[in-house]
Simulated scan of single mutants.
Amino acid sequence: MEPLQDVTIWIAGDSTVANGQTPCPAGWGGQIAALFDERVTVVNSAVGGRSVRTWLYHVQSTMDSTGECALERDASGEPVLQDRWVQMLGGMKAGDYLFIQFGINDGSRTCDRHVGLDAFKSSYGMMARAAQERGAQPVFVTPVSAIACSGSTARGTRGEYVTATHEAGKEHGAPVIDLHEHSVALYNELGFCPVPGGDVSATTGGPVGEFFCDDHTHFSRSGAERIARVVADAIRDQGLGLAAYLR
């Protein structure tokens, strides 16, 4: 049996995935490297506040005739790519993995963050094909849920973008980690509902206040570590090749 090669996990996402510069907020992408052995390098290029298209492209504040936010284009009419995506593609090699999680900011009604469902899925498809062309494995991750309650039960919050992520996975041959479903299950397991005071704020105490920052979306470092373990468990449970590198 040949030894496992060194691999890089490339991550694209929003603030719930980003490294974070302070203990709050922190994203799961900044915490997941510790769960893998020394053969894995994690390059987390998630950026707070981004939709999939503002992460990929230079997006204007006006909508085009299709109802999507207009993209800046070069002299040949091609969309201008963000440097983060160009650099990622330049370093990606066979055997690597590309994790993609958006769908939290994409539902904005206004530009530049608005992304319709078809454009959302086609953007995932473009990224998946680029990874596959380089011999890397794309993995789509449904958007992690905010904490919201129906009485004593946590409920999902990301709606159509969860379904769109699953549909994109089927269409483009990428496995899908349903972090949305798994995060809701975790909130129920931890008994987060009902949230004290009805919503999370800077004064929320107890387990909920320790897990989240000063709102219902962003994680503390310990919360991000727990979400990272959920992602790692899904990698193992779904039998992805990357599971062989987990500690």
Rank of each mutant, 00 (worst) to 15 (best):
S15E: 10
G241D: 07
L35F: 14
S145I: 03
S15C: 00
H114R: 07
G91C: 08
F192C: 05
F140N: 07
D96H: 04
Q87D: 15
T110K: 14
F99W: 12
A33W: 13
Q132C: 00
L242I: 09
E167C: 08
A228H: 13
A46M: 02
A146C: 08
A128K: 04
R226L: 13
I32Q: 10
R226A: 11
H218V: 00
G116W: 03
A131K: 00
R84K: 11
R84M: 04
A185N: 14
D37I: 05
E225Y: 14
A12K: 03
A164K: 06
F36S: 10
H166T: 00
D83V: 04
S123T: 13
V231C: 12
P194M: 01
I227E: 13
I104P: 08
W85S: 01
E68W: 03
L240S: 05
L242H: 14
H180P: 07
F36Q: 00
V7A: 09
S45W: 05
E181F: 04
R226I: 06
F211L: 09
R113Q: 13
F212L: 01
L240E: 02
G49R: 02
M88G: 06
L240W: 06
E2R: 10
Q101P: 02
T41L: 10
G125M: 08
M88L: 15
F102T: 00
R84S: 02
V80A: 06
I235W: 07
Y97W: 12
T153G: 08
R129W: 14
H58G: 11
D199L: 14
T22Q: 15
E181A: 14
P3G: 09
G205A: 13
R129T: 14
T41Q: 12
N44C: 09
M1K: 07
M88W: 15
I235S: 09
G205V: 09
M92E: 08
E160W: 02
F211W: 05
E210M: 06
V184F: 07
V86M: 02
C69Y: 09
A46D: 00
L56C: 04
G125L: 04
T110Q: 15
G239S: 00
A154H: 12
F192G: 01
Q82E: 00
S51P: 10
I9T: 09
S222W: 01
G95Y: 04
G156L: 04
V208S: 05
D74Y: 08
S76Q: 13
A94R: 09
G103A: 01
P25S: 08
D178G: 07
V40A: 15
